[in-house]
Design a protein around this nucleic acid. Structure first.
Length: 490
RNA sequence: GGCCCCAUCGUCUAGCCCGGCCUAGGACACCAGGUUUUCAUCCUGGCGACAGGGGUUCAAAUCCCCUUGGGGUCACCA
């Protein structure tokens, strides 16, 4: 009964890696690593219409990027190769022939048109939609004759009477009445097997011991268990993970936010924060520790501890975690991570940035406590690379500046005062002290100068020390931006 | 609608399996205060939940039943 632990993640390359899929992969991986099992990857490319090599590559890249490594898979092979389902077709056909020969499957000649009518009739009578079994007990002679005549047919699984139960590590034992399971199609009329059939063939062949997947597969499970029984093969243990929900409480979809792992990588979430956050959706280390890494996950993860209820994807907490990880990075590390996001905005070249790396590090130092993603860094520092004439003024910043009635006079007086002091460049410490004294002398409140000034220089309502910012943009731009603000803030 | 699954603060969750230590713990968010030229970081405090109703028991968030609510799924897609 105790088999070697072998789990798998089997994505279909019909889209980008879904964030929920990433969590499924993570939990499978963690389970294998915790209990010394094998983690394998299998590509379910049985839908040639929608599968692409690009998606497949992107999915593998995404998993690798997260730090998940597999012991067997399409790119590295393994004892049960190939790991692309399309390349395993002959095996599936053998399995199907076996089931047909032993009476666990039968040929069904019902046309799509007839099936449609059947469904319509069932709807009209408010009956449940299920195959009515017309071809289930056709005389063998008739079956042979029609098949020989070239009449198209599908292979349906002959669901026996009784009940089907299976072990689910997150839900407990689950029981289905076989009456609820229809005689489903195993092999299409074009000879290609369907998902529910192929999955079981491959899981048997690859000696998968545990199947952990999303809850949407729960209702498929009885069909699959019945198949294992028909084959006389050991049934794996299951674990149906709760769904990740959008803010509408429904299965996470593009309607309520980004769904692809790539989207979050593009926004500049630290990958460790992504992994950490994924862990927190349905699992907890000890209920108290929120920030932890994969070492802790692998040390403590068990499928039994995964919660049953779906969890709403809370982007705010995700962002908070991002900030936590960013503040744990070394300065150099963080700068390297921010770099591509700054470059992506297209206002500066890598060579330029590399040439003034210490300058860049200074800015990273000042912004790090404010950002939660690398993308936010790029956003917040856009003013540094903008032409003086077109610094974007944020709405809240503009409102804050305009609260000060004397802003124009103050700014004009300050500009006149400042100009000679910047003749030899910006000495941030000196200007800072002198400016405070200037404000005090004139009996002004600090914000009366600082808020309009901040908008003039950065266009933002908040940010790092203003005099540091002067140093970053330099004396000419400082003066020029104040001049421009005199008009834009009027 | 049939079937299946689920149900602790607004959100993520600990506690539930093996009833008592729970006047239910932590985190995000929010509110208030401190620090600060602003924003943020950081620190302090606050708000806030066992869906409802029945049982079982000396004792129930924890076990059982019902109701309600939410979700998933009903293809020759995966």
């Amino acid at each position: 009964m105790t088999r070697p632990i072998r789990v798998r993640f089997a994505p279909s390359p019909t889209g980008k890696l879904h964030i929920g899929g990433a969590r499924t992969a993570l939990f499978n991986w963690a389970f294998a690593r915790r209990f010394g099992g094998k983690f394998l990857l299998r590509i379910e490319d049985t839908d040639p219409e929608r599968s692409t090599k690009e998606y497949e590559r992107a999915i593998l890249e995404g998993l690798r990027w997260l730090g998940l490594d597999w012991d067997e898979g399409p790119d590295i092979g393994g004892p049960h190769a190939p790991y692309h389902q399309m390349q395993r077709l002959s095996l599936h056909k053998e399995y199907a022939a076996d089931l047909l020969a032993r009476g666990h499957a039968y040929r069904c000649f019902c046309t799509r048109e007839r099936l449609e009518e059947m469904t319509k009739a069932q709807d009209a009578k408010k009956e449940k939609n299920a195959y009515d079994g017309r071809c289930r007990d056709l005389p063998l002679a008739e079956v042979e004759r029609r098949a020989a005549a070239g009449e198209p047919y599908v292979l349906r699984f002959r669901v026996p009477a009784g009940q089907t139960r299976f072990k689910d590590h997150v839900r407990g034992d689950v029981v289905f009445d076989n009456k609820e399971v229809e005689d489903w199609v195993m092999v299409r009329s074009d000879g290609n097997p369907t998902y529910n059939f192929v999955v079981v063939c491959d899981d048997i062949d690859m000696e998968i011991s545990h199947v952990f997947r999303g809850e949407e597969h729960l209702v498929n499970t009885p069909k699959q268990v019945l198949l294992y029984q028909a084959f006389g093969k050991p049934i794996p243990e299951f674990g149906h993970l709760p769904l990740m929900l959008g803010t509408d409480r429904k299965k996470l979809s593009k309607r309520t936010g980004d769904t692809a792992l790539q989207d979050y990588a593009d926004r500049g979430f630290p990958k460790a924060a992504i992994v950490n956050f994924l862990c927190l959706q349905g699992w907890a280390l000890d209920g108290t520790t929120e920030v932890f890494g994969v070492e802790e996950l692998v040390k403590h993860f068990d499928i039994k501890d995964v919660g049953k209820g779906g969890s709403i994807f809370d982007i705010e907490k995700f962002l908070w975690l991002g900030g936590e990880y960013i503040r744990r990075e070394s300065l150099e590390e963080l700068a390297q991570h921010c770099l591509p996001h700054v470059l992506a905005r297209g206002a500066v070249t890598e060579a330029d940035l590399r040439a003034r790396w210490p300058w860049f590090l200074g800015i990273v130092t000042a912004e790090r406590e404010r950002i939660r993603t690398y993308g936010e860094f790029a956003e917040r520092t856009a003013y540094l690379f903008a032409p003086d004439e077109s610094v974007a003024y944020a709405d809240d910043a503009l409102a804050a500046a305009k609260k000060h009635l004397g802003r124009i006079e103050t700014l004009r007086a300050y500009l006149d005062w400042l100009r000679p002091r910047l003749a030899d460049g910006v000495d941030a410490a000196a200007v800072r002290d002198a400016t405070k004294a200037w404000v005090a002398e004139r009996g002004l409140k600090m914000p009366a100068l600082f808020q309009p000034l901040r908008v003039a220089l950065t266009g933002l309502a908040g940010g790092p020390d203003l005099f540091d910012a002067m140093g970053w943009i330099g004396a000419p731009s400082t003066l020029r931006r104040i001049e421009i603000a005199l008009e834009r803030l009027a």
